[in-house]
Amino acid sequence: MDVEDRLLGMIESFLFLMGDEGLSRPQLAALTGRDEDEIEKALDRLLTSYEERLNSGITLRVFGGSYRLVTKVEFADDMKRLLENPSPKSMTQASLEVLAIIAYKQPVTRVEIDDLRGVKSEGPIHTLIAKGYIMEKGRSEGTGRAILYGTTDLFLDRFGLQSIADLPPLLHQEEDETEDADLFMTRFQEAFSMEEEGGTDF
């Protein structure tokens, strides 16, 4: 692998990990140790590669100065089928944990989710966005203006809720915001288990 191919691979990896938050040219330059002119050329080359490859379902886009990997427009109908027919039962434990935290704590940043779970949450967040259960709800007011996540109308529909106010109460919930993540998830599952008995399609 030559130096330029390695740079493209690094940029692609960083953008994949950052998901919908993306990275700016200065951030990519700092992460790769290259100057911004080199980064811009590499991004152009990466974009060209994605656009020329008919067997690639992703491409590169810039939003507000941040570069992100996104699905190509021509696959929109295929993505729509996935979003219209998500299966809550197919979600991993990690995705359920993240969905529980977002549902009850929204709007919430990824850092806040990570802090509560004790592990990184990029993967589950990407999964939940792809399934249409969560979406961006703006930016926080703090340093860096992190993305705020919240649930979608599809989440309400799939979980049989009219609004977020209809979420089942967490059993024996304490006021302590630093409560153990496992206990938090157990309460979420217990709450929806009770809803299942009442006929909710979970």
Rank of each mutant, 00 (worst) to 15 (best):
residue 9 G to D: 14
residue 10 M to F: 03
residue 10 M to P: 03
residue 12 E to R: 14
residue 13 S to N: 03
residue 13 S to V: 02
residue 13 S to F: 07
residue 14 F to E: 15
residue 14 F to P: 08
residue 16 F to D: 05
residue 16 F to C: 00
residue 19 G to F: 04
residue 20 D to V: 07
residue 21 E to M: 13
residue 22 G to K: 01
residue 24 S to C: 13
residue 25 R to M: 08
residue 25 R to Q: 11
residue 25 R to I: 13
residue 26 P to Y: 06
residue 26 P to V: 05
residue 27 Q to G: 03
residue 28 L to G: 04
residue 30 A to N: 13
residue 32 T to Y: 02
residue 32 T to F: 01
residue 33 G to V: 12
residue 33 G to C: 11
residue 35 D to W: 08
residue 36 E to G: 04
residue 36 E to D: 09
residue 37 D to Y: 09
residue 37 D to N: 08
residue 37 D to S: 10
residue 37 D to A: 10
residue 39 I to E: 04
residue 39 I to H: 06
residue 39 I to Q: 06
residue 40 E to T: 07
residue 42 A to G: 05
residue 42 A to I: 04
residue 42 A to W: 03
residue 42 A to C: 06
residue 43 L to F: 06
residue 44 D to I: 13
residue 44 D to L: 14
residue 45 R to Q: 05
residue 45 R to K: 08
residue 45 R to H: 03
residue 45 R to E: 06
residue 46 L to N: 13
residue 46 L to I: 15
residue 47 L to K: 13
residue 47 L to I: 07
residue 48 T to I: 10
residue 49 S to Y: 14
residue 49 S to R: 15
residue 50 Y to L: 13
residue 50 Y to N: 12
residue 51 E to I: 00
residue 51 E to Q: 07
residue 52 E to R: 10
residue 52 E to K: 09
residue 53 R to L: 06
residue 54 L to Q: 06
residue 54 L to Y: 07
residue 55 N to L: 02
